[in-house]
Design a protein around this nucleic acid. Structure first.
Lengths: 145, 145
DNA sequence: CTGAAAATGAGAATCGTTCCTATAATCGAG
DNA sequence: CTCGATTATAGGAACGATTCTCATTTTCAG
């Protein structure tokens, strides 16, 4: 994670009137180093249990509220979080239907433009205020194939 | 729901060695009449409580196992079910980030082809065996906007 | 430094879901 | 049709992920 990103997040939290505490920094830093969204339990493990689960859940909720993290609703009743798009860039997901693992993928610029136009044409005629989109590709990951 | 679809599902269940019971028919028929995936709780409500939750969950599991229903992992760890693609056709979703409602959308043929090619080009280079895809468009639905 | 406001930690409570077991429905053989 | 075996159901206990509560601790402004 770049220092610039840390500063951006710091000022975002300040704007929202919440503090940028050590636990919040740890969670953000760890998520920044992962290549896909992670659940509370996964983060608890990744952080060596340094943050109790109850605090971790609250931390995730605060960071989501502040727009720093975005939830990803993957497999079987688990919510995973990742840095919001304005921090990590727009991307899509490969979701393993076997083990539930989620990896990020980035589309080539041309592909992304194509996708944007598909989304635009769909939402133009719907009573739906589109805020974002994600292409979820389901299948079997390398380990499960 | 067409009689043809009922017959298809009936023979599918027979092939799988499970019975096509009244509860299973009710669930399938109700889902066929909805325009988006529904959770166990929503179905329980929609069916007027005629099927107890524990039975409903098992019914959904059996129908998923048989390939009649497909799960959609939506808001906050809730699993909603819809008819599998071979029954209701390929489609995508509008997901309301406010209330969690999910509606189906169908892409114009040209758009869908474009999307297929995007998926194909992404998975060609990944160690990932793609089985399907869904474009999830997030935003605010008519009621929440 | 001090008091008010915000954050934390531990455990209880909640919610969606799954599991267990006794009962009931269904199918095939006779 | 009837019996026995198999499969499905209902109800409730159990479970895992998440949220809530509240007492304690940390942080910030004055």
């Amino acid at each position: 994670m770049t220092g610039g990103m840390e500063r951006q997040i710091g000022s975002r939290l300040r704007e929202m009137g919440v503090r940028n505490t050590p636990a919040r920094k740890e969670v953000v830093a760890r998520l920044a180093g992962e290549d896909g969204p992670r659940s509370a339990a996964e983060l608890h493990e990744l952080l060596g249990g340094s943050i109790p689960l109850s605090s971790l859940y609250r931390t995730l909720a605060v960071l989501e509220e502040a727009g720093v993290l975005a939830p990803h609703h993957g497999t079987r009743g688990l919510t995973r979080y990742e840095l919001a798009e304005w921090l990590k860039g727009h991307h899509h997901h490969l979701v393993c239907v076997e083990c539930g693992a989620v990896d990020d993928i980035h589309l080539a610029a041309g592909m992304e433009e194509t996708l944007e136009s598909v989304v635009a044409s769909v939402t133009a005629e719907a009573t739906f205020e589109a805020a974002g989109h994600s292409l979820e590709i389901e299948g079997r990951c390398g380990r499960c194939a």
